[in-house]
Structures are given as structure tokens and as C-alpha cells.
Simulated scan of single mutants.
Amino acid sequence: MRRTFCKFLIRILGWKVVGSKVEDKKCIIVGAPHTSLWDFVICWIGYTSMGPSPNVMIRSEFFKFPLGIIIKPMGALPLNREKGSNSLKQIVRTFQQRETMRLAITPEGTRKKTTKWKGGFHAISRLAKVPVYIGYFDFKRKEMRFDIPFETTSNVEEDLERLKKWYHDKGVVGCHPEQFVTGYE
């Protein structure tokens, strides 16, 4: 029912999902450009139109009533961000505990304009031993995709540069294009 409704919504909104659903039961999907809260909404609808909802890590305080009853069924998983907690260890442990987890992460780490992309997805991938896929949501073409394999190496900085270049070369446009910086402009 949810999948059918999301397929309907995608068509009504004029978006299209290209590619296929990621078949790995456990993986990370790096998604960009993250320039608006609409990114989450449109991507959730798009990904869910292909099958189960993706997972996202959200601060645990958001799981209180009433928001918790909305975000939990959408694939949100709690992340304790209190002082002294280790986000990386929590996420790796969550991967180990779950049978299926397709974790969506934005490398920019914020919706604001930033030149510094974060390599947390890289560390999670290596520690949890899960593959990484590139996802994108292009507001100009109204197109999204989630299934492009991205081979990580032992060099985080080089991998981040390769990822930035991929997004630049693809010409992906965010909801607020002026906030998406790859460094290749």
C-alpha cells in the first residue's frame, strides 16, 4: 500500500526514479545535494516507491511523542548525541544488530552551504563492512537514483574528492543550487 501510494506521489510531483533498488540488505547510500528539508521528503517518497523505506539516523530526542510515531515507520533510527556518546560506534552496532539496513547519509552533513564534506560514511562502511552506493536527487531534471556503486579505498580524502567530482560531472542540481559546493565550480 505504501509503495503504491509513493509511486503515485512521485508521478503527481513530476519526478522519476531511474536505476533500480539496491539489492544489498546492508549498505550505505550517500545522497547529495542536501540543500533543503525537501530532499528528505522527495527521496523518502522516491526510494519507498521502489520497496522498503531507507534508514536514516536521527537524534534520539526526536523519537518522543508525537514525532516518534511518524518518523519510526519511515525508517528513522535513533542516534544518541549526548556528550560522551560515540555516534560511529552506535551506527556500526546498529548495522550489526539489524538484518536489513540501507542507511542514507549526506556527505555535506548540513543543508547550509559548505565546502567541507564529511567522511563519516566512509568510516562506517569500513567498520561495518558494508558497500557504499551513490544516490542523487536532481531538482532541475526532477530525477533521482540510489544504486550507483562507489568503491571506497583506504584514503578518505581522495574518495571524498572523487565523490565531489562525480556529483559535479553529473551536473546534479539541488533545491537551492547556490548552497551545493563541490569545489569544481
Score class of each variant (00 low, 15 high):
83 K>C: 09
34 H>K: 06
122 H>P: 02
72 K>P: 03
36 S>G: 03
102 R>L: 06
58 I>W: 01
95 F>S: 10
120 G>N: 12
59 R>G: 14
86 N>G: 10
93 R>L: 04
61 E>T: 14
94 T>R: 15
83 K>R: 15
98 R>Y: 08
46 G>F: 05
82 E>T: 09
87 S>L: 01
117 W>N: 01
23 E>A: 13
81 R>H: 03
86 N>H: 09
77 L>P: 02
117 W>T: 06
118 K>A: 04
59 R>K: 14
42 I>F: 13
66 P>E: 05
76 A>W: 02
27 C>S: 09
51 G>K: 09
71 I>Y: 02
60 S>T: 12
52 P>Q: 15
117 W>D: 05
41 V>H: 00
98 R>H: 10
109 G>E: 06
38 W>Y: 08
53 S>L: 11
50 M>S: 10
50 M>V: 13
29 I>M: 00
93 R>T: 11
20 S>M: 08
92 V>R: 05
44 W>T: 14
74 M>N: 07
21 K>L: 07
78 P>C: 07
47 Y>E: 12
89 K>V: 13
94 T>L: 11
34 H>D: 04
42 I>P: 14
41 V>E: 06
99 E>D: 15
98 R>N: 15
61 E>R: 14
36 S>Y: 03
107 P>I: 00
68 G>R: 05
93 R>H: 10
102 R>Q: 14
115 T>Y: 14
113 K>S: 02
32 A>R: 11
71 I>D: 09
116 K>D: 11
91 I>L: 10
110 T>W: 00
115 T>I: 11
121 F>L: 10
112 K>M: 02
120 G>W: 05
87 S>G: 12
28 I>H: 12
84 G>Y: 10
98 R>G: 11
86 N>S: 08
112 K>Y: 08
74 M>D: 02
79 L>W: 01
22 V>W: 06
119 G>F: 02
55 N>C: 12
65 F>G: 12
40 F>A: 13
110 T>A: 00
34 H>M: 08
106 T>R: 04
75 G>L: 02
107 P>V: 06
87 S>F: 07
27 C>Y: 04
53 S>I: 09
89 K>W: 07
55 N>W: 06
32 A>D: 03
30 V>R: 04
56 V>P: 03
83 K>Y: 03
82 E>P: 05
45 I>R: 13
50 M>G: 10
19 G>V: 02
23 E>P: 05
87 S>A: 13
62 F>H: 15
109 G>T: 02
116 K>N: 12
110 T>L: 01
83 K>P: 09
80 N>Q: 01
122 H>I: 01
30 V>T: 08
